[in-house]
Design a protein around this nucleic acid. Structure first.
Length: 492
RNA sequence: GGCAUCGUGGCCGAGUGGCUAGGCACAGCUCUGCAAAAGCUUGUACAGCGGUUCGAAUCCGCUCGAUGCCUCCA
């Protein structure tokens, strides 16, 4: 029996604004799409939080035993920097500034993106399609929308007719907007604007002569509109209706709203059962923006080369910090908060090491099954990782109590306890073992054990000068000795 | 200006009508040769003002503030 049959997962659906019991279209299988990055510069931290949130979602679904097809795209076709017809796209602009080919820009920042996500221990998606690899499909869907009368062509560009669409469907249902309000609120169209109405969005844009990224189409040379690629790639790999669509809060409108409109206009079907939106990351209480300097790149955090934080923090600590907040809450990053997260993370990891050597008794006086279910309940409640972590710290407390003989654990209980702790910490939360990087662990361990032995002999002889010298020397190397009832252990 | 989300103890961050969140920091105690580690104990917080209710951090209204969207953006 798969775990998902025992657990009832609820997901907060942005479309209905409430938590709903998750039921996949095909029993045992989940299709999930997440909007990926536009690869025209280095990924920034907020981006990473969104992808990390959905990595956690992906991991928990896998943990529950679902077969998940997880699609996350790469936006490598240039999209205009503003709404004006004459605008330059972001990738071409970067190419011009760096004096390289647009595809070189794409390659460079795709590699950077993958590197950073790997450091954060994100699982790669099942499929990572690119927009430029799906130009043909995008042209095909534009034809369908034109045929069904929800788009119009103007001077080699094709626009989606929002007002016409809204007569039959509901444009704005995801973001809670009314088209009338939006019309009342928008500026007059400029004379040279090709759109019938300012809410209309481009499905295809004619390429100006200087535009480098361009493809032939029935409407002349041009490039696809931004919202289209997600519609095309999600339906191609997941079907016309699929289970979960995720992305950052800021994509809710207009991007996701337009995706719904495109799908409904093409297939007369709502594309997504559960819409999930991850919330923003702020820095010292303010939005991150390059222009104000209130900005941090992941590498600047790892290296410590920045003016905002007091020290470098490893990726695993950042990940733990982010997992301590719910994905739908705004999370504020600060030096103080990271410092606290790092200590908590270390305590958790140290306890996990100690867990290997817990004494086993003939009986157990801990309610492990109840505790395990509370861990699942937390995750089942819209992926509440902070509550899960609270329960894991209860586990940490037990580990210490068992070591000191104040609680007991039988053999079966030990296995259940270990599997549960490790399952949640490593598989679900995606934490990495603290000592994964050290190569010569065994040699080091031998050397430290020898020193511990020498120190304890000195202590027995009341030669505290020697014992303290050993302790202080190890301490300055970053090795901390911990004297317990059962002997001395250490942590790095 | 419009729409949306949110405002919790020294800091971070769950909770969403009555019952312990958790982490970090602080203090006391236990342990220790001394420390560290670990354990135990203590903190009565929910932006402000009104209202609903037997009872509200939790529901309603207003005010203030933050963030997001309305234009490319995770």
């Amino acid at each position: 029996m798969a775990l998902y049959e025992e657990q009832t997962l609820k997901i907060y659906n942005s479309l209905s604004s409430q938590k709903e019991v998750f039921q996949p279209i095909h029993e045992g299988h989940v299709g999930m799409y997440v909007c990926g990055p536009t690869v025209y510069s280095k990924v920034h931290l907020g981006n990473c939080r969104t992808f990390m949130s959905f990595d956690m979602v992906y991991r928990y679904l896998l943990h529950l035993g679902y077969k998940v097809r997880f699609v996350r795209n790469i936006t490598d076709a240039g999209h205009l920097e503003d709404d004006a017809d004459q605008g330059e796209d972001k990738i071409s602009k970067r190419a011009r500034l760096e004096k390289i080919e647009p595809m070189e820009v794409v390659q460079r920042y795709t590699v950077d993106f993958h590197n950073i996500l790997r450091k954060f221990n994100l699982l790669p998606p099942s499929i990572e399609p690119t927009a430029t690899g799906h130009i043909v499909e995008q042209i095909e869907i534009i034809k369908i929308i034109l045929d069904r009368g929800y788009a119009y062509e103007k001077n080699g560009s094709v626009y989606f007719d929002v007002q016409k669409f809204n007569k039959v469907y509901h444009y704005g249902k995801l973001s809670g907007r009314k088209l009338e309000d939006m019309i009342a609120n928008t500026r007059e169209l400029t004379a040279q604007d090709e759109k019938k109405n300012s809410q209309d969005f481009a499905l295809w844009k004619r390429a100006e002569p200087q535009h480098i990224m361009r493809w032939p189409s029935p409407w002349g040379e041009g490039f696809p509109g931004w919202h289209l690629e997600c519609t095309v790639m999600s339906t191609k790999y997941l079907g016309e209706t699929f289970d979960i669509h995720g992305g950052g809060m800021d994509l809710k409108f207009p991007h996701h709203e337009c995706e719904i409109a495109q799908s409904e206009a093409s297939y007369d079907k709502s594309p997504v059962r559960y819409w999930m939106h991850a919330n923003m990351l702020t820095l010292n209480g303010k939005k991150m923006a390059k222009s104000t300097g209130n900005n941090l790149l992941p590498d600047e955090i790892f290296s410590g080369e920045n003016k905002i934080l007091s020290k470098p923090y490893p990726p695993s600590v950042i990940r733990f910090f982010m997992m301590q907040a719910h994905y739908t809450s705004i999370l504020d990053l600060s030096d103080e908060a990271l410092l606290a997260a790092e200590k908590g993370y270390t305590r958790l990891m140290d306890a996990l090491d100690l867990m290997e050597h817990l004494p086993v008794s003939s009986s157990s006086d801990l309610d492990l099954k109840g505790w395990r279910q509370r861990c699942y309940d937390a995750m089942n409640d819209d992926f509440n990782s902070p509550v899960l972590i609270a329960h894991l710290f209860e586990g940490v407390k037990w580990i210490h109590l068992i070591r000191e003989g104040k609680q007991t654990l039988d053999a079966g209980g030990k296995t259940l306890f270990q599997d549960t702790m490790k399952g949640f910490v490593f598989d679900v939360l995606g934490m990495e073992s603290a000592h994964a990087e050290s190569v010569d662990t065994e040699k080091l361990d031998g050397a430290v054990q020898l020193l511990i032995k020498m120190r304890n002999k000195a202590r027995a002889d009341k030669d505290y000068a020697t014992s303290d010298e050993i302790r202080d020397a190890l301490s300055s190397l970053g090795i901390q000795l911990k004297d317990g009832k059962e002997g001395t252990t250490y942590s790095l």
